[in-house]
């Protein structure tokens, strides 16, 4: 009797393990297929950048028979990409640093300070997130033109100094901080600004990394605003530079893809460095909802 029960338990255990392994295999097959779908455009971009010019117009091959590394040299020499890179870095740094600082400061104020109309102001701020970006394009242009900032780095940066989303993100994050921490800092002799600087800001690394990644990707990939606000090619950003390969009568696909590959490297590197914070942020957002 005991032996029968024991063998039944062993069989059940074995079946459970097989079911578990099958589950894992199915999950991995699904994830790999999904991953391949996500990876495909990047793969196509990189292989196209290495194909000969004429091969692009023939029957599609994913992997070229000969790698044309000179496409990169030609693409980089076709326009002052160094200047475009520099312009982009200046604009991106300006936007990212100001968004991080101002969002964190405003988020702290909304989370911790008591002032009249706080909730109404916050609601108004949130409502601006529902406004499509394109609605603000013309008014923003008119303001920047009136300020005489067309064809300047400041003109490229100014409309994106503050982010309502960033303020919302930091406010929600700071609300979760223990109130005692703030009270202790007040007794220890801190002003409100010092509490933000010495206590809240150093504890905001996941939030800073998440918003920093968002702001970076937005600023790096920004095309429409630089197109509107710059007429001088010396002020172009990388995205405008790449658009040069698309002409009226055709597109130089191999050179365009070579330029694009170079332009996405910083974005991918940044994403990889801050991936864990980015995922933490997604988990945080999911919890808030």
């Amino acid at each position: 009797m005991k032996k029968l029960v024991l063998s039944q338990m062993i069989v059940r255990n074995l079946l459970d393990r097989i079911a578990h392994i099958m589950q894992r295999i199915l999950l991995h097959v699904f994830l790999m297929a999904f991953g391949f779908v996500m990876l495909m455009p990047f793969l196509w971009m990189v292989t196209t950048s290495l194909k000969p010019r004429e091969l692009v117009r023939s029957a599609p091959h994913l992997i070229p028979t000969h790698f044309h590394w000179q496409n990169y040299v030609i693409a980089l020499n076709a326009a002052p990409f160094g200047k475009y890179y520099l312009n982009t870095i200046i604009v991106v740094l300006g936007i990212v640093i100001s968004q991080l600082l101002l969002s964190s400061l405003a988020g702290y104020a909304f989370a911790r300070l008591r002032f009249p109309g706080k909730n109404i102001i916050f609601l108004i701020l949130l409502s601006t997130m529902m406004m499509p970006y394109y609605i603000t394009l013309i008014p923003s242009y008119l303001i920047i033109r009136t300020l005489g900032l067309v064809n300047t780095h400041l003109g490229l940066i100014l409309p994106f100094l503050v982010s309502a989303f960033g303020i919302f993100l930091f406010r929600q994050y700071y609300i979760g901080f223990p109130k005692d921490l703030e009270d202790k800092a007040l007794i220890d002799g801190c002003s409100r600004l010092q509490i933000w600087l010495y206590i809240y800001l150093p504890l905001s690394k996941p939030c800073l990394a998440a918003l920093g990644t968002f702001a970076f990707l937005f600023a790096w990939n920004s095309f429409l605003w630089p197109l509107v606000i710059t007429t001088d090619p010396d002020m172009w950003t990388i995205q405008l530079g790449l658009a040069m390969f698309s002409g009226k009568y055709g597109t130089e696909w191999t050179y365009l893809m070579a330029g694009t590959t170079i332009s996405v490297i910083p974005a991918i590197a940044l994403f990889m460095i801050f991936q864990k914070y980015y995922i933490k942020h997604l988990a945080l957002s999911a919890r808030l909802r």
Binding site: D180, L181, D183, I187, D188, G189, C190, P202
Partner: peptide, 20 residues
């Protein structure tokens, strides 16, 4: 008087140590 000028020190239930 603000807390910092009262020459007091407080110990909290949650200890309120700065985690970083």
């Amino acid at each position: 008087l603000p807390p910092k000028d009262r020459d007091i020190a407080m110990v909290f239930q949650t200890y309120a140590l700065y985690p970083h």
